[in-house]
Design a binder for these strands. Structure first.
Lengths: 347, 347
DNA sequence: GTGAAAGCGCTAACAG
DNA sequence: CTGTTAGCGCTTTCAC
């Protein structure tokens, strides 16, 4: 049997309340009393029962984080950032994955699976505004990612349109004139909308034609999808001189196909990805990518949930995290390694 | 205010117990009564308070999973497997990462950070047997991964020695005679011990010399570590004709360096990784790898925790999950893609 | 089959 | 500064 406050109180010869005061670092306890109680706590190996505390306080100290999938390393890295940020605030993270499927996202958003949580951070893919509007749930919800809803929920994201424009501008500045977009779209939802918009806007403002034949729709967001999209463009007879992919895995899948087709990166086709995933830094050709500030996203998401929990904030906030373009070999031209034993790891 | 059992009972004009019976699918409730209560539940939108249930039952339905890092895609994929397996059993997963650092692993093993959990699945790197022996904690612990301890905790893993031997045997069968081992070792702990032992055993039984100059120690287990290790071997003037890496990221880092040095894979150097991570399937040269059955590992780990929780098992179990060698281009020789529009994704 | 009452371990009022 | 008491929402005996 676990030892309870009562046991400690009996052992120390004081009341339950006094022990509680010590455990909770209550201000007005005499040092002598504190020491005495602490001795009993140590002697009995007392550890507070969180379930009871939760029942009483109505808080659990647990934040749920629901991401589409961990197979995409961006989300794995984001999860790490959220876990660390939560730990800073003495909270713990319950992790779930939705597969980017609407019904899973709806379930998660209503906290069906995990009802022990104080708050919820969700990165939706297919979820609609209506699904969210129907949400009858009082735990605070914070949204992450590219989808934007006109609803009273905090949203943390980078400026996707601007980021996409930066990527495309970079390609154009290298002399590319036919920039393909490999992006995820399926069904009604259009998760890649903002990045596609940025692609379109930048091409237009550069005076280049916006050619929808160079936009490849995909079913998912993985390597295989990027590869399939690239094959689609090539077999359609198109030969773009640049590819801007929705994310890094898709960019890498595309590069794999380009390689198989005997097209060189970046000489024949320059490639830019999105997310700046660690994997992109170690391929035969390192990948230029838009790098969102994941650490900031994680931190802001956690702080946002906690602020709402504390009741300090009432207004809905759209928070922009930073981003920057990290230029590597897939656009900058092939550099050759100095065979002097130094290892060059592009940052 | 949330609606409680009492509210529902009042609304339905029955006792609390009856409502509880309905909520918990208790057998002996008349259908009429069940319907009536259910109507009140729906009308009021009642949802059970888990904190209260936990307090009463002493169970939370939460399993903690502590992994070294999610940056390594193997662990990301493993996390997904555990989450799914737990969901099958109506349990939820609390995720934590240790960074593979001993003090973090000790903390986690004692459930310090997360005291709301029914059980714990831990994949240790540096943790010592003594650390574990000192563990004064009653929540069931299940261990994952290559480290083996002679302690009363269930352990789920593949047969690392046999798996490593298979990998090395494959390389030898291709005519390789100088097989380097790129593995993680630092401080006193030797996480790569079993795989290194397999490497040694297979070389010996093939009548090849075991050359410690071909064993590269590293600080971590990432791309950069693999790259650095490869640079170390090459700058030492060694030219192995094969590399067996502790894991896929390290293998990919090594391949990157081989590429920079103008060495072709697999013509000059064949490479085998470990973990069969999805990333390995899409590089310019796809990676041959030992593929552990992650799905089985996740499932067995969850079942192991729950069995111990149910008190059905008392004996300590060492469970072996399956593995197989997936042969791809990094050993099998470069195949050229058929430019017929079909996309070939090596399984 | 259903109801009444006790209590899981803790915290928050309020007394003292 | 410390003790007493009530009750968070639920499950679990035990009567009826």
């Amino acid at each position: 049997m676990r030892v309870s406050l009562k046991d400690v109180a009996a052992h120390a010869g004081v009341s339950i309340k006094t022990v509680s005061n010590v455990v909770n670092d209550y201000q007005h306890v005499t040092p002598a009393m504190r020491a005495r109680v602490q001795r009993s706590i140590d002697a009995l190996g007392y550890r507070p029962n969180l379930a009871a505390r939760h029942l009483r306080k109505g808080r659990t100290g647990i934040i749920a984080l629901a991401l589409p999938e961990f197979g995409n390393p961006y989300f794995a890295e984001l999860a790490a950032a959220v876990i660390d940020a939560a730990a800073e605030h003495d909270h713990i993270v319950l992790l779930d994955h939705t597969g980017g499927r609407r019904e899973q996202e709806v379930l998660v958003s209503q906290a069906f699976r995990a009802r022990v949580i104080d708050g919820l951070i969700l990165s939706p893919i297919e979820l609609s505004a209506d699904d969210l509007r129907d949400r009858a749930e009082d735990v605070p919800l914070v949204l992450l990612g590219e989808r934007e809803y006109d609803l009273p929920y905090d949203h943390i994201a980078i400026d996707n349109v601007a980021a996409a424009r930066t990527a495309v501008r970079h390609l154009i500045s290298l002399g590319c004139r036919e920039v393909a977009f490999i992006g995820a779209r399926r069904g009604n939802s259009e998760p890649a909308e903002l990045r596609l918009r940025g692609w379109r806007a930048e091409l237009t403002s550069a005076g280049l034609s916006v050619d929808d034949g160079l936009v490849a729709a995909t079913d998912g967001w993985g390597y295989g999808d990027g590869a399939a999209a690239m094959v689609g463009i090539l077999t359609a007879g198109r030969r773009p001189d640049a590819v801007f992919a929705y994310n890094d895995p898709m960019a890498m899948g595309a590069m794999r196909v380009l390689h198989e087709w005997g097209l060189r990166v970046p000489e024949d086709v320059a490639v830019v990805g999105f997310d700046d995933v660690v994997e992109g830094r170690f391929g035969a050709v390192t990948l230029t990518s838009v790098s969102p500030d994941k650490e900031a996203i994680g931190r802001l998401a956690v702080e946002s949930v906690l602020a709402r929990l504390g009741g300090t904030t009432s207004e809905v906030r759209r928070i922009r995290a930073g981003h920057r373009l990290v230029e590597r070999e897939s656009t900058l031209g092939r550099r050759h390694a100095a065979h002097d034993g130094t290892i060059r790891v592009p940052s």
